[in-house]
Design a protein around this nucleic acid. Structure first.
Lengths: 205, 205, 205, 205
DNA sequence: CATGAATGAGTGTTCATTCAT
DNA sequence: AATGAATGAACACTCATTCAT
């Protein structure tokens, strides 16, 4: 059994993601961590309820570091295959952060540093990665793109939008599932980058 | 001054969007509605706190109906102009629902009917509108599209993703603003639908 | 329809007997009196909730006066028949006062004058009547009784005990019903007064 | 100092007997139990206010068991002495249950199980004991009684009536005190059982 | 390190009462 | 005379936090 402190953090992350910060009582966390509920045992490990939430967010930095490592390994072969991989990987990553995302959605207003951390670690990084990919693609075709950041944001935000809706509402009954969405996204991405390269390369020449 | 009941609903919408349902006390709502706080005056107009939240969500149906009306008036001329208008209008609509969206993000878990209503009224409708637009565009070019629903979801979700991030984190400092995002979106949409039409149209063969 | 004031008193008596004073809200009384609940309409007729209770008790004096009149009419024939009549009439009277009795049981602590009034009007009167009957019976047999008040109390309190239990617990399932209780009471009363007369008359002679 | 739980039960019994269930606030009970009022400390020991009332009634089962033990020890010598003892003991027992009785009178409507428990534990038991006594008395004289249950109810209910009036109104000023009432009761009981035996015994024929 | 008891502030809700209409 | 809205004080109950053991 992991040490009590870690059990508390894990329990808190799960509960807060489900019920929100105010909706989760210290007693709930204690119970879920295997302590006797309402005993105050949590306070041997954290000075306050809020400190537990901060620990939950802090724990998150590690996760983000893992992500960075994985990204380097992306294969470069068939363009369509590459884009499909990117899309799937992005969705998977966002899903892995469901709980943290939920917490940010629920408590971001009250814990702005928390929201800021999350944005830098996940969102901004995603935008930057996508922008870099667009630029590198253009470079591979000897072209330059007018606004690669915007293109990156577009590619990223559509994945984010899809995932957040799934998170908020569950899978749509009769809606577009991941496979179809990814297929559409790949087609759109392909169309976009090819058009960007076409548009700009003649002008540049 | 609008009648008390309406003031209560307005106050509740704002407060709950900011602080969440549990974070907003009946006394807070009363105070914000110009009643004396902790007086229980709210209960002359609603049987419970929860009923206030339901009224907040109900109020929303009207908004959606307005949307439908506006959409019919969309001009059909220059394609790029049309898409720009669609994007701007979609973002504006989603922004208009910021508060409701916030409430759904914070309380969707606890009030599933609320989330379901929101999904049907806003998200699903958006998807359907976009899918219809794609199909009508293809029809205008005598073509058919493989998976118009997926294309519609893609177009919609990217706007949703953009707006939700803005909502969650505020405007990104040094990030992509609405103008640039819309420009990228229009380009992407254009590229996508043209490619879809080419791929599928018999003319292509 | 009787005037509002009377409807309020009637409604209050019933409700307070059922639910107690604190368990009955002004709104309940208003509703039961045909006024719109929680409107405060009661206060056009009474200065306070407590004043309503006082009016309920005051109304009671009339009832007691009726009792006095009936008692004179008691027939004097067969002794067993006479006692049976007394028992049945006593039980009936106590039952007629069920609601007031309930109120006294529930609220007597808080409204001592109310309890005192009730005692004088019902209990003490019963005791006195019974004592007088015992004495007159002894006189009819040319005897005197040692403690007619105690004998009267005994005869009265057994009826009271029977009725109060019925009131508190409802009719006992498989218990002794009114007919059997009255039969036993008559037998007991007969045995008692005959013994009292025997005991004392020889000593007196 | 007895443990907190017991102090709460004791305080609750007293307060509820005086003021009724609704008239007694959790804060009142806490204060009377030596806890800080309105602190919610009671909820460490009971899940709800109602549970406290139930504990008060449950406590009562022990008392009844004691009664049964005492009754077995009743001496069998002089009949008049035996009856006097029975009467005094019965009155004493009923007085010991004054608080519980008050609670049943005030709250029996709202807590029917409570009233039912009380009835079975106290009233029905009393009736049965008295009926058995009458039968055993008749048996001692080789006779049988027509309706021993009714006779038992008569003997019991007169004691109950006496005690309830005392409870409701306090000792009557200038009324019949316990000594005189008991004397009358013994005389009545004696007269009754002797008459029942005469009536029914074959010796009478 | 863990527990049970305690505390005081707070929550949603009810209610007697007042007042303008 | 009756109503609907408003008020402030109460109530049952919850919770974050502290402390002695």
């Amino acid at each position: 059994m992991p040490p009590t402190r870690e059990r508390i953090v894990a329990a808190a992350r799960q509960l807060i993601a489900q019920r929100g910060y105010r909706g989760t009582s210290v007693g709930d966390i204690e119970a879920a961590a295997g302590l006797s509920p309402r005993s105050g045992a949590l306070y041997k490990h954290f000075p306050s309820k809020r400190a537990v939430l901060e620990a939950v967010m802090a724990q998150h930095a590690d996760v983000v570091d893992e992500m960075r490592a994985q990204i380097a390994v992306l294969p470069l072969g068939d363009l369509r295959a590459e884009l499909t991989l990117i899309a799937r990987w992005g969705i998977a990553e966002l899903r892995r952060e469901h709980e943290l995302t939920r917490i940010v959605m629920k408590e971001g207003d009250h814990f702005p540093e928390l929201a800021a951390t999350f944005r830098e670690a996940i969102v901004d990084r995603g935008h930057r990665l996508a922008a870099e990919w667009v630029e590198s693609f253009a470079a591979r075709h000897g072209a330059r793109v007018h606004d690669p950041a915007a293109a990156g944001a577009l590619l990223t935000d559509s994945l984010v939008g899809f995932t957040l809706q799934e998170l908020l509402f569950g899978p749509a009954p009769g809606g577009v599932d991941e496979d179809r969405f990814v297929a559409a996204w790949v087609e759109g991405a392909l169309a976009l980058v090819e058009r960007l390269v076409e548009q700009r390369s003649p002008a540049h020449a």
